[in-house]
Design a protein around this nucleic acid. Structure first.
Lengths: 192, 192
DNA sequence: CGATTCTTTGAAAACAGTCAATCTGTGTGG
DNA sequence: CCACACAGATTGACTGTTTTCAAAGAATCG
């Protein structure tokens, strides 16, 4: 399980073994079974979380009870609520395991200390942030400029493995349309 | 004009005067009149750009000729196309001055060198990235979860100064609805 | 197998987009 | 200073898309 994280880091940067081990010494191992929660609405999120295996979703629930999926995080991705972490405010989101999931948690203070101490790690972390930002921008662009059908096609194109791993109504929620609409879009599309 | 930048940096970090001056020594001053472009679709974006005064918008144009506004950047904000800058690929976006605008440009290489050399500056830059990320996330959340009316109200609430500075049809474009729909939403709302 | 979750389908209503015309306000040049 | 041009906003009529609610059909899991 720690091996997954080691491999991930080694693929991204050439960190000295001892730095890697120091980082790992702060990792808290957390295992979730399907449908368990890593974070629940109203709680303050205090970690950086790396998914070693499994699959997690981040979503909010509005006052009508409708869920809105902000993110899917499979193995080798990070998850959490940056806003709650930064401002130490109650989270608006829930993070739920969609499969049995193994996670490494790093406490905020430990993580910041490691960033300050190990500058290669700091760079790596900022690179991830940079990539996440590009991903959000691209999602915003598709939100404001595409038709529902194109939003769906674009999602499948960009995240084929996720598209195969989650129920269709969750894709609908992620792209911001109702499950019925997505079902109809798909049945229309196959008629061609 | 350089004063604006100095003030901005001093508000965010306590950089030694000499570091600040070194940074400034790489700044390229650019002035745009209203309707002039900082970047045009198809060109590769090679800078980091700080707006000292004025106001700029980033938008794409789809195949129907409809514009989609990705961003508004007033004074004391950064602008550019991170994707084009990072990957050195032609930009999908246009950046146009909505008012006469004064900008400081930093070449990619210079900027990266300054980040490497001046670690406080690096931290500052990463903080800005972090904030931009939070802003995007919040925009995505409103894109996928709000009604058109609430998207508009939310925009005005979050960016009151921008809402007062741009024509209404640009707000419509930013939130992803047609100008006519926004007009109708507003007239409905005042009837209460 | 039975229970639950997921997907599909139908019909009606709400919502949003399109196109074209008109109205409003602003600023520029004669 | 006025008239005109221009950009922006509004409105109407129409069309198309999406949501909603309800019910039924498939698929999956324990």
């Amino acid at each position: 399980m720690l091996e997954v994280f080691k491999k991930y880091i080694n693929d991204k940067a050439s960190l000295p073994e001892e730095d890697l081990n120091e980082i790992l010494s702060y990792a808290i191992i957390k295992k979730l079974r399907r449908r368990q929660f890593l974070l629940q609405e109203g709680d303050i999120w205090r970690y950086n979380a790396f998914i070693c295996s499994g699959f997690v979703r981040t979503y909010s629930v509005d006052d009508k009870g409708t869920e809105h999926i902000m993110n899917f995080s499979p193995e080798n991705y990070w998850t959490g609520d940056r806003e709650s972490l930064t401002n130490e405010t109650p989270s608006k989101f829930n993070i739920e395991a969609l499969e049995n999931t193994e996670i490494l948690l790093f406490k905020k203070e430990d993580f910041e200390m490691l960033c300050r101490k190990i500058s290669l790690f700091n760079n790596l972390v900022n690179n991830i942030l940079h990539k996440s930002f590009l991903t959000s921008q691209s999602r915003i662009h598709s939100n404001i400029s595409l038709t529902s059908e194109d939003k769906y096609n674009n999602f499948v194109l960009k995240f084929p493995t996720i598209a195969n791993r989650v129920p269709q109504h969750m894709i609908a929620s992620y792209i911001g349309i109702s499950p019925e609409t997505l079902s109809r879009i798909r049945s229309q599309a196959t008629k061609k």
